[in-house]
Amino acid sequence: MSMPPRPGLLRAVFLLGLAAGCMTTTSPSPLIPPGRVALRSNGTPGPEPCPEEALKAMRYLRIGIGEGALIQLDLNQDRVPTVTLYDGPIESMLEEPLGQLGAGTRLYGHVWTGGPQVTIRYYSAQEIGRDEIPVCGVVRVSKGKMARRPDSPPDAAMLDFSTAGVWIVNAFR
């Protein structure tokens, strides 16, 4: 007598298949697109579509477009009064659940500091002990709080906080 498949196993196989469909070999994370985003004249990243694999994964995880959650911006600078961000990869962490992703889930993305405000886009999420899955999210903070401090070095952006909000998007604009 054969056992019916377990729902958790089916979820893992589904998400692994999604992740395998969008892997690259030149990125620190297989789900983050390395260097393919065109920059605008002011140094901010240009438009970028959310991959269909990420849209499917977010639907499966019941994460709706426009939903948001509180995150720690940079796990290397957890809960410090001033965070210094550099262009390149970033690892953040959910402070609260987002859809079926629990608090503690890591978010992997990319930081751009060249514009008037810091831009952070997330391309994947990973719960502890699970595979990375594709997502599309951005950091948004109102009232200009993602603006670089005036005393920021030229190749970095200093911010006066270590937490922010991540918002799920269907495309990067």
Rank of each mutant, 00 (worst) to 15 (best):
S124Q: 01
D131P: 05
G144K: 11
L94Y: 03
G17F: 12
A38M: 14
P81I: 01
V118I: 13
F161A: 05
V138N: 09
P153D: 10
P33F: 10
D74S: 11
S41K: 14
A164D: 07
E132A: 13
R121N: 05
L9D: 04
I120Y: 08
L55N: 02
L107V: 00
G46S: 06
A156Y: 03
R130H: 07
P30L: 15
S124I: 00
N42T: 02
G66S: 12
N170Q: 13
A171M: 07
H110K: 13
P49Q: 08
P34E: 09
S29A: 12
N76H: 11
G46L: 06
R59S: 14
V135D: 00
L10W: 08
L39N: 10
S124T: 00
L101A: 01
G8H: 10
T119E: 14
G104M: 08
L70Y: 02
I71S: 09
N76L: 11
P51N: 13
Y123L: 02
N42M: 00
T84I: 06
V166G: 04
A69Y: 07
L159V: 04
M1N: 10
P30D: 11
Q100G: 00
L31Y: 01
G114A: 13
R149N: 06
A57P: 00
L18T: 00
M3P: 01
T25P: 02
N76A: 12
L18I: 04
P28E: 12
I120L: 14
I71M: 08
I128E: 14
P81K: 07
M23S: 11
V138T: 14
L101Y: 02
V111T: 12
C22L: 11
Q72G: 06
Q100N: 09
E52V: 07
W112C: 05
R121L: 03
P47V: 03
R59N: 13
K143R: 14
L31F: 05
I168H: 09
G99I: 04
I65E: 15
S152N: 04
M1W: 07
R40E: 11
P97R: 13
V118P: 08
P134K: 00
C136S: 13
R40P: 01
G102C: 09
L55Y: 01
E52Y: 11
R149D: 10
I120F: 07
R149S: 05
W167Y: 15
R173G: 03
G68H: 15
L85D: 05
Q117W: 05
G115P: 08
A57V: 01
L98M: 09
L70N: 13
K56S: 07
Y86S: 06
I168N: 10
A171D: 12
Y123H: 11
P89L: 10
R149G: 00
Q72F: 11
G114V: 02
L31H: 04
R148F: 00
A171T: 06
E48N: 03
P150H: 04
T119S: 14
P150M: 03
P97D: 11
L15P: 00
I133D: 00
T26S: 14
L16R: 08
G137Q: 14
E52D: 12
P47H: 14
M23K: 10
I168F: 15
T44K: 08
A164L: 02
G109K: 07
L15S: 00
I63H: 07
G66P: 13
I71H: 10
P4L: 03
G66A: 10
V80W: 03
V166I: 15
A157F: 03
